[in-house]
Write a protein that binds this DNA or RNA. Structure first.
Lengths: 335, 335
DNA sequence: TTGAAAGCGCTAACAC
DNA sequence: GTGTTAGCGCTTTCAA
């Protein structure tokens, strides 16, 4: 790979001049500019991004931490961040953390090593203290899908508790009182918020949600299938299922159908997120809309802005809480 | 952000020694190592990845070019690459190109600027010549989902034509002869291969596929819906739909159902890819399996290997063609 | 309008 | 074992 020196030699100018040309600086005569451009083309030269970053002390790269690219929810998030970043001419570096504390930390560290000043982090598992710490060290550190009061001006979040509350309230209104809740690994932040919301709706309605009606399972269709299998095997009685997300819901529907229980006639099911799948599965899924695309865009813009201002937070706006909304389709019937 | 010099000062050693410690080089006494480590912790120091890359002349980063992260197909691909890269301690840099020639080229260029020596590229639209050119310049350049003879030892591909052929052969065997084909933008590589396969199956069966039975639409559910709407509006008669991918198929099913045509009783539908959606939509979709996860893993390993060998291709293996297989579910009936 | 020179943060010879 | 030095490819003063 050729360097700026090679180009300068071929064009018969100094490296500085070549630098001026590739950076569109003015103060270069049209003639030399032309010569340089030709040399660049001839040598197929691309300025080394690392060298540039090193001297400029900035990369214009936004780092993204999330757990699982292949999950449609995160895929939408990634896409939205990317589109937004492009608008601001920023590059995107994605680092995945999975549901493991050490990995999540590493993901952030590797982004730090890349000297990303802007970061959008979807932490599922790190402690609040550690995240607050990061926020204080990294100017453009933004948390998405999570709320921590101490750094609320850097949190873009959905009110998950409200979402859980909505699901439960709706299903109770529909006349179901034997409800099965499919949650996920209890250390996962949003899962616990949603569960809290569900429980508070039960309490408010003076109903009881027995502990054995809560099953913790993996957040994918297989998880949904397994959970239903298990509930049925344990003889748990239920006429409704509240799933952690749409993928789990869809797996639950599949297993219920397989066992001769039709949805929504025998069992009602509610998902969460409203990903593509929810609209096209059968029956179309009643679910809670998670406006992740809008939120990701906001998070990206905030991260970029903060990193420019060296972390100085704007005075006017200081909270970014989004509201979940029930999308009623066909997977719920009167109980 | 602190530098190696700051650390060396605080620890009372030379920068070289610090470098030795962070690189786990031997020849450092336990005592100094301890001092240095303490200083590192105290200053919260992370070695600057760009500076490192610059002097080492290598980044251990694999670049990925693809069009659309939010498509589940690509999401699986990204995930598989990531998992594989991690095994080899390589970082992943994703650059998206969309279905636009200039953007695709830019995506590759920006990866070049980052000095990625290994690259997995899913090109939808660049010309063969240009791709061959890149392959000659970039040691670890690997093409995924595309076959170009001149660089076949760097191509990981599915036999799309065979896949198209299989779909069509199966639907013809099932007794359908009024078939609607939902393809996508005709410049897209795999779409054209699949279409060619479909056509050759028709020819071989001495059947005719009229030109107005081929509709070009966007590769997502909305595209499927629109295409069906259009076909119906134009009074085209069909009892079977061959879709470009599962997302299109699922959209088609939704629109057909909406119009009072049930699947598979009135119309049979076949998808392509076998993404998660295919198994959980209604009815479960008969589709063509695209083993993208395995292929992505292979591509990653190949790219990494080639980049280590400076592009020298191993002698033993020299072709990576994968076979599509029909997965029979419930969206096809006898015609 | 152009060039020389210093330096970004790190590693790798080569001394000692 | 440890330090000194040069240099990776680029940008940016400062001079000319």
């Amino acid at each position: 790979m050729s360097t700026i020196k090679d180009v300068s030699k071929l064009a018969g100018v100094s490296p500085a001049t070549v630098s001026r040309v590739i950076n569109n600086a003015n103060g270069v005569s049209a003639k030399t500019k032309e010569k340089v451009k030709q040399a660049i083309a001839e040598l197929d030269f691309y300025p080394n991004a690392q060298a540039r970053a090193l001297v400029k002390q900035s990369t214009n790269t936004i780092g993204v931490v999330m757990s699982e690219l292949s999950d449609p929810f995160f895929a939408i998030m990634a896409r939205s961040i990317e589109i937004t970043a492009e608008k601001y001419n920023a590059n995107v570096l994605i680092s995945t953390g999975s549901l493991n504390e050490e990995k999540e930390r590493q993901a952030i560290n590797s982004l730090q090593a890349q000297r990303c000043k802007a970061m959008v982090v979807n932490s599922k598992i790190l402690s609040d203290e550690e995240l607050i710490d990061f926020a204080h060290k990294i100017p453009g550190f933004v948390l998405i899908n999570k709320y921590i009061e101490a750094i609320q001006e850097r949190c873009i979040w959905l009110d998950n508790q409200q979402g859980g509350f909505n699901m439960a309230q709706y299903i109770l209104e529909m006349g179901h009182s034997n409800v099965l809740v499919l949650s996920t690994k209890n250390k996962v932040y949003d899962a616990s918020r949603r569960l809290a919301g569900i429980q508070s709706a039960f309490t408010q309605a003076h109903k009881i949600l027995p502990a054995n009606h809560i099953i913790y399972t993996s957040p994918d269709p297989q998880g949904g299938e397994k959970a239903i299998e298990q509930a049925l095997a344990n003889g748990i009685k239920f006429t409704a299922v509240l799933a952690y997300n749409d993928a789990v819901a869809v797996g639950a529907v599949a297993k219920l159908t397989e066992k001769g229980l039709s949805v929504p006639e025998n069992v009602s099911v509610i998902g969460f997120d409203d990903v593509l799948l929810a609209n096209y599965c059968s029956p179309p899924l009643t679910t809670v809309k998670y406006p992740i695309a809008v939120m990701s865009q906001k998070a990206t813009e905030l991260a970029l802005t903060l990193s420019k201002n060296e972390g100085k937070v704007s005075q006017t706006i200081n909270t970014y809480k989004y509201k979940p909304i029930i999308i009623k389709r066909s997977s719920v019937s009167w109980g």
